[in-house]
Design a protein around this nucleic acid. Structure first.
Lengths: 267, 267
DNA sequence: ACCATGGAGTTGGTCCGACCACTACGACCG
DNA sequence: CGGTCGTAGTGGTCGGACCAACTCCATGGT
């Protein structure tokens, strides 16, 4: 035990400046014991900044597509450092609320379903175990309803798009390509349902990595044939414009995977 | 139009160094023309850091609840500055993936539905116009199914919780309190459905600010009586353990608001 | 008159280093 | 043995410097 500390009255830090003029930063902020100052008593300054920007948008002081002031401006305006402001902006960027264009400025996104629900994919990618089953259950509910809606509304052009991917899926043996067209098949159907918000949620629930994780094992068990039959059933219902048949077919389709995953977790 | 921008000249910055020894920062990084170096050619370093941390969790190298290395460590490990690393961490924090405890460290959350879907509320808070209708349609689909599931599974204890809020809601005239118990009423039902993921999504779709925005106008039109009747119908179906009746009652309940909002947008 | 071009200024992206605030853990003292 | 007080360690904040990408306009050639 060397024991080389203590020696009271030491200078700890300090004594290192003198390179630059002493930082006259005595009365920075928080000098008072959090008295009647202006700053809200909430959490970190960054969190406060996030809330304030969100509030600006919610209150309509910032319209979708509109450009925000500079990072430097914003920071000065809220009385925080640019670093903290950047953290706030980054946070809102990953949430799909803001969009930063290097050299140009920061803009509010269109706040459409696709923008805001992109993060939904993260949930699907990081969930595991029983949570995956719950996620599939949600997908079953939404996708079956969406498919039913699509059966009632789908146009000739949209149906052609669906059939294109259905044919492509049946014409190849490359798992990668099958997965791609499988995704596109369902995406085309959901798009025909006419609810972009639902489509965006389902997009997240069917994200590439999510499906790759679950379907890998599923299809290795020779489920290709069954998948094909189920897709055909969904397609028939769409052609017949039969919502209830479409709902049942879609629910069964997702339900199959769901049930398989459930047994996997038990074993 | 004053247009007092410009004001050319002015020495801007530069000429301020010389306080510290010249920064011998010539060959920092990126010296080579992005040749065969290690760094991925993707977007900003921060985005890369976000993806890498996410990957660490997805691959199981970081377990839920586990503590991460220091910000300083992490930054050094990925070869980026602490500032950039902090932005990445902040982003994952707002996504509900990480949790920072001041003075202690950074931890992976339990990655449960509630953690990851908290951001869903942002969508509801920032959506407007037609998107609100789409959001309500999603809620109608999910909530009606959840209520049906609850009717089949609900226990005596859970039913008592539901009835508590139903009674409290009918016993007051304070809109604030009604809203609170209304939320709790539906929350208790959805909880009885047994799918935490669905519950978390519906929680976001019924966030306080969201409901306040829509409900305000809706209830001002004297919809209290109707709301009460609908709640009673839902309750009856739960008591009778009748899933289909519960589904219909819940769908009608949300559908009423949905339809009202639709007319609002037209007018 | 019109368009390509180039440079200057603006703005986000990255980095550094310092200091502050909080926590955890262990030595010290009663 | 248990409470107390430091101290080291960690996230939080700050300010400044420089880099890289974009914008806009003056310039000059066609």
């Amino acid at each position: 035990m060397v024991r080389l500390r203590a020696h009271s009255g030491c200078e700890r830090r300090t004594g290192v400046d003198e390179t630059v003029a002493g930082q006259a930063r005595a009365p920075v902020r928080g000098a008072g014991p959090r008295g009647v100052e202006a700053a809200g008593p909430k959490g970190t300054v960054t969190e406060r900044a996030i809330e304030q920007i969100k509030a600006m948008i919610a209150e309509g002081r910032l319209e979708p597509g509109e450009r925000l002031p500079t990072e430097r401006d914003l920071a000065a305006r809220l009385g925080i450092s640019r670093s903290s402001m950047r953290e706030a902006i980054r946070a809102l960027t990953v949430l799909g609320v803001l969009e930063a264009r290097h050299g140009s400025g920061i803009y509010v996104t269109q706040l459409e379903a696709g923008d805001l629900l992109e993060t939904f994919g993260v949930v699907a990618d990081l969930s595991r175990g029983p949570q995956l089953v719950e996620l599939l259950e949600v997908r079953r509910i939404l996708e079956s309803t969406a498919t039913a809606l699509a059966a009632a509304r789908i146009t000739e052009g949209e149906l052609a798009e669906v059939e294109k991917h259905l044919a492509a899926m049946n014409a190849t043996d490359d798992p990668e390509e099958i997965l791609s067209h499988d995704l596109a098949f369902h995406r085309a159907i959901v798009a025909a349902a006419g609810n972009e918000t639902m489509a965006a949620i389902l997009e997240g629930l069917s994200s590439r990595t999510f499906r790759a994780r679950v379907w890998r094992g599923y299809q290795e068990e020779g489920a290709f044939a069954r998948t094909r039959r189920e897709h055909a059933a969904i397609h028939r219902a769409l052609v017949a414009h039969d919502p209830e048949a479409a709902r049942a077919a879609a629910a069964a389709h997702v339900g199959e995977v769901e049930e398989w995953l459930r047994t996997q977790l038990r074993g």
